[in-house]
């Protein structure tokens, strides 16, 4: 996190040329390309889940329960005779949905709160910064478990709970970026020309300060996906056994790990692969923006 903050000053002055440069560096990073490939694969699986994984993910098929991997069932079947491959493929939707929903909502909240604190300064800044401190003082998983339980579990509760304890990091980072840009000469100049707050913020401050925040937010996607799985694994997140959440699947298949290890290994691998794709690309983006770290 500290490293991203330092890059704020670097990213500010020349936006367009920096983007071109960033993309060029990213393309040269083999790990980032691998990340993009994995994400593309996962995204395609999510979009075309109904075409790729045609076998039912719900129901009960007594005559094909607990089968080992085969040509018909690539990942085998579970206690209900459900095709594990289909369930794992459909699980991509839950992971991506949770990952993107959380990141989109925390970006919105984090930018509004952090932006307001950084842009206006003064009492607003003091109050909002204290609020951010309170949230950051709460260990993440502890807070999310309590909140997700309070909200009654399920997909929406998971999204809200994770977002609730993730936005402060974004807000703090964006606040820092805004403060560093606020005092710059061209912002002063725009102000002297009589630009209003909203126009100032959206035309000048936001575009010049948001990049590190976006990179940081991107890095939260894998964290979020793993957090959803962890909450569901512990029995607090997604609880409806019909939903193919990877974390819930691992929890449900855990008693069979000795005799049918593939039931745990495949959802576990899906989780690891997906998280890895986002981590590789996230690292690549960060390195491309701040090549000193390579």
């Amino acid at each position: 996190m500290a490293t991203v903050e330092t890059s704020a000053g670097v990213a500010a002055p020349e936006v367009r040329s920096l983007r071109g440069e960033t993309w060029r560096r990213l393309r040269r990073n083999r790990m980032a390309i691998a990340g993009i490939a994995i994400i593309a694969l996962v995204a395609l699986a999510a979009i075309f889940a109904d075409l790729i994984a045609t076998q039912p993910t719900e129901g009960f098929f007594a005559d094909q329960a607990r089968e080992s991997p085969s040509a018909r069932h690539w990942f085998g079947t579970d206690q209900l005779g459900l095709d594990l491959f289909s369930r794992v493929v459909h699980g991509t939707r839950i992971s991506l949905m949770v990952g993107f929903s959380v990141v989109a909502s925390i970006l919105l909240v984090g930018i509004v709160v952090g932006g307001a604190a950084g842009y206006f300064g003064g009492i607003a800044d003091t109050l909002l910064s204290r609020l951010i401190d309170v949230f950051l003082g709460f260990p993440f998983l502890v807070g999310t478990i309590i909140l997700v339980t309070a909200l009654g579990g399920g997909k929406m509760a998971v999204i809200v709970a994770i977002a609730f304890f993730s936005w402060p990091g974004i807000a703090r980072l964006f606040r820092g970026s805004v403060i560093s840009i606020r005092g710059s000469e061209y912002v002063e100049a725009a102000r002297a020309l009589g630009a209003g707050h909203l126009r100032m913020f959206f035309r000048h401050v936001l575009p010049n300060s948001v990049t590190p925040t976006l990179v940081y937010a991107f890095a939260l996607i894998p964290t979020t996906i793993i957090a959803e799985a962890a909450l569901s694994f512990l029995g607090f997140g997604i609880q409806n056994p019909a939903e193919p959440s990877w974390g819930l699947m691992i929890a449900r298949y855990r008693p069979l790990i000795q005799t049918e290890p593939h039931l745990v290994i495949f959802p576990g691998m899906a989780l690891t692969m997906t998280a890895m794709g986002f981590i590789l690309l996230g690292d690549g983006l960060r390195d491309a923006l701040d090549p000193r770290l390579r």
Partner: peptide, 14 residues
Amino acid sequence: SGAGHEEWIQAVAA
């Protein structure tokens, strides 16, 4: 939830 009844209840529903 969480007491091992998930699977057979799903089977009954089906």
